[in-house]
């Protein structure tokens, strides 16, 4: 009967411990992250008690993290972008061709960012001006830009070994003090910057209101069309940057290099606690959510469980995390759940 009693008390006005904890941005997912690390330390001490595995995560996760951070803002606006794997391919091609044909990786960096911006601009214009739902637009453009990258590169891969040890390599894939991977620092800097954009900048506030309700945003004087175009363009630029990080780290470009990023990057956003309904988003959550995704595969394999288990466990963690967010953020659902638990105890 605890359900009836508790539903009468005005819990909304006097938050309990759990909702108050939920106000610490990303706390539930930080806990899940810590629990997973501790679990792996116990289950696979020979791997997870040493430095190398963590340094390895810091080189493999950053491109996905940069994508997931951009996606967090897109999802906050109630939109979705599925075209970023092709941005990795197309912008990566632009970078590679500038290096191999023109010998200028710096021009390549600019070209990759500009190419990403172009992809985002097209997406944003189709969504905001023409009014095609973003999920449909970006499925289409994902095919187109992947195809464009294949045509232009002739399906070939480019070895970029000559970049090793150059200034651009040291800046984007080198190690600070000989230890800390530079791409991790770049990803961290972008995460911090984008946190301020989302939570403290006028643009971020407009994104949140657009995701909350387009009508409210418009009535409040937000230029919904322009801000949506800016949002997708920003996502494209971040995709272009992720492409450069990935290509330089691999010292290799191949036209299918974006494959395999779509679902993990999206999973990082949703594990982190950003709502698929728009209007709320957490960069901190995305940060830890993406590292959880990036860590699971190596972790599961290191514990000695067969590799076949990786995807199943990823799925369980994903669903559990999303359920956890819903329960923690909604006092009503929390009450309902504790009611069920209470009833079971009575039986």
């Amino acid at each position: 009967m605890s359900t009836h009693l508790s539903s009468k008390t005005p819990e909304v006005r006097a938050p309990g411990l759990l909702p108050r904890l939920a106000r610490v941005e990303g706390l539930p997912i930080i806990l899940v992250f810590v629990i997973l690390v501790v679990f792996f330390m116990i289950a696979a001490p020979q791997v997870f008690l040493g430095w190398p595995i963590y340094l390895s995560f810091l080189t493999t996760v950053p491109p996905m993290l940069v994508l997931a951070i951009g996606l967090t803002l897109v999802v906050a606006a109630g939109e979705i972008d599925l075209s970023f794997p092709s941005t990795l391919a197309f912008a990566g091609y632009l970078f590679s061709v500038c290096e191999t044909q023109l010998g200028s990786p710096w021009l390549g960096l600019v070209a990759a960012l500009a190419g990403g911006a172009l992809i985002g601009l097209v997406n944003g214009t189709l969504v905001a001006v023409v009014g095609v739902p973003s999920i449909i637009v970006t499925i289409g453009t994902q095919f187109f830009w992947a195809g464009a990258a294949s045509i232009l590169s002739g399906g070939q891969s480019d070895a970029l070994q000559e970049l090793d040890g150059t200034a651009i390599y040291n800046i984007f894939a080198g190690n600070l003090f000989g230890v800390l991977p530079m791409q991790a620092l770049w990803a961290l800097a972008i995460a911090v910057f984008m946190w301020f954009i989302l939570n403290r900048h006028r643009f971020g506030e407009h994104v949140l209101f657009i995701g909350d309700s387009r009508t409210v945003a418009r009535v409040a004087g937000v230029n919904v069309v322009l801000e949506t175009i800016k949002l997708f363009t920003l996502m494209g630029v971040l995709g272009g940057f992720a492409a450069v990080l990935l290509t330089i780290e691999n010292l290799n470009y191949f036209s299918t290099q974006g494959q395999g990023y779509l679902l993990p990057a999206l999973a990082g956003v949703f594990i982190g606690g950003t709502s698929v309904f728009g209007g709320t988003a957490t960069i901190v959550g995305t940060f830890f959510g993406t590292f959880i995704i990036g860590m699971l595969e190596a972790g599961v394999v290191a514990t000695g469980i067969a590799g076949f288990w990786v995807q199943a466990i990823e799925g369980i963690v994903f669903v559990a995390a999303v359920v956890l967010h819903l329960v923690v953020e909604s006092p009503a659902k929390l009450r309902a759940l504790s009611g069920i638990v209470g009833l079971r105890r009575e039986q």
């Binding site: 506030e205 949140l208 209101f209 009535v219 209007g279």
Partner: peptide
């Protein structure tokens, strides 16, 4: 005229 999921201070100044 108000964003449901946003805090009050954002709604006043958006």
């Amino acid at each position: 005229s108000l964003g449901e999921k946003q805090p009050l201070w954002r709604n006043i100044f958006v």
